[in-house]
Computed example of a mutant assay.
Amino acid sequence: MAGGQATVLEVAKEALVLFCEALQVVGDSYAIAGFSGTGRHSVDYFTIKAFGEALTPAVKAGISGLRPHRSTRMGAAIRHATVQLAPLSSRVRLLILVSDGFPNDLDYKGDHAIADTRRAAQEARARQVHVKAITVNIGSDPRLDALYGRNHHYVIGDVRDLPDKLLRLYGLLTRRS
């Protein structure tokens, strides 16, 4: 936290708890996961809340305990989440990726990382898993179309708007997906 301003991660955690509480009321099934990595052989994907698990104090503590770890190898995380989502029986299987930037890892940078992330999102869509990205605290960037595909990403320029906009975006995504 710099100068009394909440960090992207702090606001994202607050938004995530509010979003989960709203999903509990609506009755939609959801899971929460995070990922981090260093190189292609060291990508960690960790479940914070499994499908069917209640939003317990332990889950809220897991969200609260999220910290930045290593690098951002998005393609691997999307592929793992797709394996979790694809077999679920649901009208809409939606993978929402919240990020403050682009994929970046030891050997995973620039055009290569963007192409792999795009390929992972396309593979997910081929399995009827709708990948949507919410990118916070960066301006609109034409590379986002290359990363996620046109009309599959949303930019929230100020992270403080994330809690308010997340629920509206979810409603829009579940109607159109």
Score class of each variant (00 low, 15 high):
R127Y: 00
R119N: 13
L169T: 00
D116H: 11
I156F: 00
D105K: 09
L166Y: 02
V43T: 02
T56W: 04
D158Q: 12
V155G: 00
T47C: 12
Q122W: 01
N104F: 14
P68W: 14
I138T: 11
K60C: 02
S89E: 12
I134W: 02
S42E: 12
R118A: 13
V59W: 02
H41Q: 14
A126S: 11
V155D: 01
R168T: 12
D145I: 07
L55P: 03
L173W: 04
H69I: 14
L144N: 03
H41S: 14
L147H: 03
R40H: 06
T47K: 12
D44N: 11
G52C: 01
K49C: 03
R168S: 12
V131M: 06
V59F: 02
R91E: 13
T47S: 12
A76C: 08
L106S: 13
L147G: 06
F51N: 08
G34P: 00
M74I: 08
P68H: 14
R160Y: 11
R160D: 12
R79C: 08
G157D: 05
L147T: 08
L55S: 02
Y170V: 01
G157V: 03
D111H: 12
V59P: 02
R40P: 15
V59C: 04
V129P: 01
S71G: 09
A133S: 08
T117S: 07
Y148F: 10
L172Y: 08
R67W: 00
G139F: 07
T56P: 01
G171S: 02
G65K: 07
I96H: 03
G62D: 08
F102S: 06
Y148A: 08
A86K: 07
G75Y: 09
S64W: 15
R93T: 01
V155F: 00
S42N: 15
G52I: 02
D116L: 13
A146D: 15
T56H: 04
L172K: 09
Q84P: 00
E123L: 09
A86L: 02
A121C: 11
R70Q: 15
Y108T: 10
L66V: 11
V98M: 09
D105G: 03
Q128N: 14
D164Q: 13
A76L: 10
N137G: 15
K109C: 10
L166K: 04
L88K: 11
A120C: 05
L144M: 06
L166W: 00
R127L: 10
P103M: 08
G52R: 05
L166Q: 02
K60F: 03
D107Y: 13
I96R: 04
H112E: 13
A77E: 05
A50L: 10
R119E: 13
V59H: 03
P68L: 15
D111T: 14
A86Q: 09
V136E: 04
D100E: 07
R73H: 15
P163D: 04
T82D: 07
N151M: 00
G62S: 07
D164A: 15
T135W: 00
A54M: 11
A120H: 06
T135G: 14
L88D: 05
A120G: 07
V43F: 09
A121T: 07
Q122K: 12
P68K: 14
R175V: 08
T56M: 04
A124L: 08
R119F: 15
Q84K: 13
E123R: 06
V129E: 05
K132H: 09
G139C: 01
L173H: 05
